[in-house]
């Protein structure tokens, strides 16, 4: 969806961090992207290639995406269950009284720098 603007946000945060931590070249960026987040990793990689190339800080950077599994609380089972999409029923009882508890994150975890 809006991976281009998100990717620009990533590069902006990296620029801030470069100033704070005193690095000038990034070799690798690790993003944590939840399975239930609104981001498509393929699109993120595509956009990152375009955005990173235009910036001396990120032009040689490689993007690594760490997927975080989707987790939900099933009210009927009173249990935490794993789900792959927001439209999944509870894998234990088949019901839909599930509230997402994890897997929506979109974070920059860490960077390998020189």
């Amino acid at each position: 969806m809006h991976e281009m603007s998100l990717t620009e946000g990533v590069v902006r945060i990296l620029e801030e961090q470069a100033a704070t931590h005193g690095f000038s070249r990034i070799k690798t960026v690790w993003l944590e992207i939840g399975e239930l987040s609104t981001v498509v990793p393929d699109s993120m990689e595509f956009c990152f290639g375009a955005v990173a190339a235009g910036n001396p800080l990120t032009k040689d950077a490689r993007l690594e995406i760490i997927r975080v599994p989707g987790t939900a609380w099933c009210m009927d089972c009173s249990a935490s269950v794993e789900i792959a999409t927001r439209t999944d029923p509870c894998p234990r009882c088949g019901g839909y009284q599930v509230t997402v508890t994890a897997g929506t994150e979109m974070r920059i975890k860490e960077v390998e720098v020189e």
């Binding site: 946000g9 945060i13 690095f23 993003l31 920059i108 390998e112």
Partner: peptide, 9 residues
């Protein structure tokens, strides 16, 4: 070196 960022996109 590795720099921890831990920032929400």
């Amino acid at each position: 070196r590795i720099v921890q960022i831990e920032r929400d996109i």
